[in-house]
Amino acid sequence: MKFIGITGGVGAGKSAVLDYMATKPGVRVMLADEIAHELMEPGTDCYEQIRQAFPEHDIYKEDGHFDRIKLAKVIFSDENKRAGMNGIVHPAVKAYVIAEAKRERQEGTLALLVLEAALLIEEHYDEICDELWYIYTREEIREARLMESRGYSREKVQQIFSSQLKEAEYRKHCSVVIDNNEGLEEMQRQIDAAVCAI
């Protein structure tokens, strides 16, 4: 089994890449965001740690689950709170991913385990994954996608872009670059070639 980490800037089309890879036999796709959501369910260690870290804030729904909009407002209003939140959630996600990768290797039924994470490089997933892949899409295409699909203003898009790694940094850490500028078929061809080369 090979373990691939997939990353790229917001709006690069990572979801389309992962959807395509998930259709392949012997491939399992994991999303760090989804794992984080599961690990933050009531009753989990993460949930308790977050509850204790933000005791003065109303960040809950009536059923006790976190209200993601309220939580986002709290952590994005204060860099220290964001760092505190990340310090709870990111290590928990990484521990889960390491355990799943180990389990999948032992079971031996998968050809490919794929993980998508926004902070793949920053969180040093290169130490766990066999390869990192960078999904590259030109900035103007990403900007147009985000403005159309999420209703973001140009200013908001640029603000998000400036908070993410630069293209050179992605390329430095990733051994495979999937160019996602020429449409779905070309992207799928490149993925097939990259999978065959593993």
Score class of each variant (00 low, 15 high):
residue 99 A to P: 00
residue 99 A to I: 05
residue 99 A to Y: 07
residue 99 A to E: 15
residue 99 A to D: 15
residue 100 E to V: 12
residue 100 E to R: 15
residue 100 E to Q: 15
residue 100 E to G: 03
residue 100 E to D: 10
residue 101 A to D: 09
residue 101 A to V: 12
residue 101 A to F: 14
residue 101 A to I: 08
residue 103 R to M: 12
residue 103 R to F: 14
residue 103 R to Y: 13
residue 105 R to F: 12
residue 105 R to Y: 13
residue 107 E to S: 08
residue 108 G to N: 06
residue 108 G to Q: 06
residue 108 G to R: 02
residue 109 T to M: 13
residue 109 T to V: 11
residue 109 T to E: 15
residue 110 L to Y: 12
residue 111 A to R: 11
residue 111 A to F: 13
residue 112 L to E: 08
residue 113 L to Y: 06
residue 113 L to V: 03
residue 113 L to R: 03
residue 113 L to K: 02
residue 114 V to I: 13
residue 114 V to G: 07
residue 115 L to K: 01
residue 116 E to Q: 05
residue 117 A to G: 02
residue 118 A to W: 08
residue 119 L to Y: 05
residue 119 L to G: 01
residue 119 L to M: 11
residue 120 L to Q: 01
residue 121 I to T: 04
residue 121 I to W: 12
residue 122 E to L: 08
residue 122 E to H: 03
residue 122 E to V: 04
residue 122 E to D: 10
residue 123 E to I: 01
residue 123 E to H: 09
residue 123 E to Y: 06
residue 124 H to I: 06
residue 124 H to L: 11
residue 124 H to S: 13
residue 124 H to F: 15
residue 126 D to H: 09
residue 126 D to K: 02
residue 127 E to D: 14
residue 127 E to N: 09
residue 128 I to C: 04
residue 129 C to F: 04
residue 129 C to M: 14
residue 129 C to A: 15
residue 130 D to V: 06
residue 130 D to L: 08
residue 131 E to Y: 14
residue 132 L to S: 02
residue 132 L to D: 03
residue 132 L to Q: 03
residue 133 W to Q: 04
residue 135 I to T: 00
residue 136 Y to T: 00
residue 136 Y to F: 14
residue 137 T to F: 07
residue 137 T to Y: 10
residue 137 T to K: 01
residue 138 R to S: 05
residue 139 E to G: 00
residue 140 E to W: 13
residue 141 I to P: 00
residue 141 I to D: 08
residue 142 R to H: 10
residue 143 E to I: 13
residue 143 E to C: 15
residue 143 E to T: 15
residue 143 E to Q: 15
residue 144 A to I: 06
residue 144 A to L: 13
residue 144 A to T: 10
residue 145 R to L: 14
residue 145 R to S: 12
residue 145 R to A: 15
residue 145 R to E: 13
residue 146 L to D: 01
residue 146 L to F: 10
residue 147 M to Y: 08
residue 147 M to Q: 11
residue 147 M to D: 04
residue 147 M to L: 04
residue 148 E to R: 07
residue 148 E to W: 06
residue 150 R to K: 11
residue 150 R to M: 08
